[in-house]
Design a protein around this nucleic acid. Structure first.
Length: 641
RNA sequence: GCCAGCGUGGCUCAACGGUAGAGCACCGGUUUUGUAAACCGGCGGUUGCGGGUUCGAUUCCCGCCGCUGGCUCCA
């Protein structure tokens, strides 16, 4: 991945709460890097920034910076646009806002920009900043604005002008011979002390509409201080270094194959081990909370999805039919219809509710080719899915249980998180009353679990309200994985019933929930979160055994056997070769512990222990080391001591 | 899907109209070493696939597949 290109992506990682976007019954929280939404900034942006030690607007004004960072960045985007105009006469301008980590500007120009052109543009920007530093604001009449834009042939800007409400003042900002229709504000002068860098190029539809022309977008960033810019660039480098696709190759974790088709992940043994460890953890914690494992088929008759409603509404995401005995079947894009069918196999009594059915269910969905991304956006993935069938009275208790489980799981991986309560959207099924009750149950459950909720007004699915969790990883980036959703729709569609204590048939509520989201996305994200340095409990290999000379191989082989007997994952490096190389290899493989043994250790039954990330070695009795390892595994410690 | 860029041994990269090369990895030999790469040698590529232009294509053109950065999308 190219640094500049990567920067463009990263520059936009911030939350889009998904407000107003409804999700289907079974879209249980697929984690994703949040979509860019330049105009609607996340309330958590500043927090995420400061966590990385980056400056943010309030911090900037605190230290007496004359303008907020976003103002600076917006002005630098203007500066960039003026440089582009000088270098590429005939350019039409789109929008050029400040965004979370920088800014961009969209251009319609006859030539295709290349990365190397950015250098020339930067140079021109510096020249302009020196030559015509003064930025001037001018209020003009609508007619005047229109006249000027028309004279310059700025069609996109003319359209932008029409977007401005009638009663609003119309302003242009000018420096030198360049001016832009813009509401501002801007910094006063471009020769103030600030630092910027152009980062990447991308295509972007005019006004985000795929039916409209594709413009060329340049991303860049700017800071008041050189240190902050440098820190940001270093951060981008760190992000690139930790990219799960890069580490995926280096650590032999996974692959995808041209010959096998895009978007299908092959888990290599190393990542298989990580996944197994996580799955075991997952099952253990679910069993502990009264979940029961279920397994449902991957291919079902099409009519099942007609009943669930997915076929009608979301056919675009589903793979086409296959005929079995001349009847149409579909690969499942979600697990819930299968669970609903199982629920119906017999009459259900209130006495057996709630039912908590969990399945690591693999689903297949059509994703457009351009959106596929390593393990994070794929066409086949396994959800850590579960459905809870319960009575309305049980809802609060069940939600509380899910919230507790999610928090426990996220903490285990060292994630910080924020929870959002998504309420009734405009288009929704179910009565106001049912919604209000369910929302109340969610709120009360959160209260009970002492979980603060951020309100996402109208952000619920059409079939019910939900709580979404966004986690922040070690690099300060946000992901959405966990979710708990109430569903009034599917019980209706599948005509699910239970007989209540009064003898009457009633509808259960179905709760969809995912803790990890999809294993592909979660584990892919985890690779980046840990930078390949997995904690002992889920590391691919937990211990590397290294003999000092070949004659010590038997000793380490014996230790390896004993460790494997205790179900530890061991890399026994007993093949011919040099110790130093083995140490290097173990280091590169990010194995948490190296046990090095020679004459002394073999004689005393000890091992020289070297922890990942240090060069120190500690001599320990082998049993002592095993006890340490066992404790780290049992407690799922994030530390190595 | 759209815009742009890219696709050379397992990996990282070079060559760019004239017989495809390096390092790492791998294999063999020598070496037997106390904490990040021993030494020598060898194997390995129909340059993503298909078509075209050319005396000659990895190089130029077209189509497909895949990858990268964004955009749109993710029930």
């Amino acid at each position: 991945m190219r640094p500049a290109g990567d920067a463009g992506r990263v520059a936009q990682i911030h939350a889009s709460a998904g407000v107003g976007r409804s999700r289907s019954a079974c879209q249980v929280g697929r984690a994703r890097k949040s979509t860019p939404a330049p105009r609607s900034r996340s309330p958590r942006t500043a927090q995420a920034n400061s966590e990385r030690g980056m400056s943010n607007e309030s911090a900037a004004s605190q230290v007496g910076e004359p303008f907020p960072l976003s103002t600076l960045r917006h002005s630098v985007s203007h500066l960039m646009a003026s440089a582009v105009q000088r270098l590429y006469p005939g350019v039409s301008f789109g929008f050029g806002p400040s965004i979370e980590h920088g800014f961009y500007y969209d251009f319609d120009l006859p030539t295709k920009l290349e990365e190397k052109d950015l250098v020339a543009i930067e140079k021109e920007m510096r020249r302009i900043a020196k030559q015509t530093p003064q930025i001037v604001r001018e209020e003009v009449t609508r007619a005047e604005a229109r006249k000027r834009l028309a004279a310059k042939g700025q069609g996109y800007k003319l359209e932008a002008l029409d977007l401005i409400p009638e009663d609003e003042a119309i302003s242009v900002y000018r420096h030198g011979d360049w001016e832009d229709l813009c509401e501002g504000p801007h910094v006063d002068r471009l020769d103030r002390n600030f630092h910027f860098k152009l980062l990447s190029l991308a295509g972007a539809y005019w006004r985000g509409d795929e039916k409209r022309p594709m413009l060329q977008r340049i991303y860049g960033t700017a800071f008041w201080s050189k240190e902050e810019l440098d820190r940001h660039i270093a951060w981008l480098a760190e992000v690139k270094e930790r990219d799960h696709r890069k580490l995926g190759t280096e650590l032999d974790l996974f692959s995808t194959h041209q010959e096998a088709g895009a978007g299908f992940v092959f888990w290599h043994p190393n990542l298989g081990a990580v996944r197994r460890a996580i799955e075991e953890f997952w099952w253990e914690e679910h069993q502990r909370r009264g979940y029961e494992p279920v397994y449902t088929p991957h291919v079902l008759r099409e009519q099942v999805f007609a009943v669930s409603g997915h076929l009608q509404n979301y056919a675009d995401m589903m793979y086409s039919e296959m005929l079995i005995d001349e009847m149409p079947y579909r690969v499942k894009p979600m697990n819930c219809p299968g669970h609903a069918i199982m629920y119906r196999t017999r009459n259900r009594s209130y006495r057996e509710l709630p039912l908590r059915w969990a399945e690591l269910g693999t689903v297949y969905r059509y994703e457009k080719s351009g959106v596929l991304h390593g393990m994070l956006r794929v066409r086949g993935f396994t959800q850590d899915d579960a459905h809870i069938f319960c009575t309305p009275e049980q809802l609060e208790e069940e939600i509380a249980g899910v919230v507790e489980l999610i928090r426990m799981a996220l903490s285990t991986f060292g994630f910080q998180y924020t929870a959002y309560l998504a309420t009734r959207p405009e288009k929704a099924i179910g009565s106001e009353e049912v919604w209000a009750k369910a929302i109340q149950a969610l709120e009360k459950a959160a209260e009970r679990e002492k979980l603060p909720l951020v309100l996402d007004e109208g952000g619920g699915a059409f079939y019910g309200p939900k709580i979404d969790f966004k986690v922040r990883d070690a690099l300060g980036r946000e992901w959405q994985n966990s979710t708990v959703q109430c569903d009034f729709n599917l019980p209706e569609r599948f005509d699910l019933k239970f007989t209540d204590s009064d003898g009457k048939e009633k509808r259960p509520i179905m709760v969809h929930r995912a803790v990890l989201g999809s294993l592909e996305r979660f584990v892919g994200g985890l690779v980046e979160h840990f930078g390949g340095k997995f904690p002992v409990w889920c590391a691919a290999k937990q211990v590397a055994l290294i003999p000092i000379r070949e004659e010590h191989a038997a000793y380490v082989r014996d230790l390896g056997k004993r460790l494997r007997g205790d179900l530890f994952r061991v890399e026994c490096m007993d093949a011919p070769g040099h110790m130093n190389k083995k140490i290097k290899d173990a280091q590169h493989a990010q194995i948490p512990f190296m046990l090095i043994a020679g004459d002394r250790e073999a004689a005393e039954g000890t091992v020289a222990v070297r922890r990942r990330g240090t060069r120190e070695q500690v001599d320990m009795k082998f049993e002592e080391f095993v006890a340490l390892l066992e404790r780290l595994r049992r407690t799922r410690s994030l530390e190595l001591n």
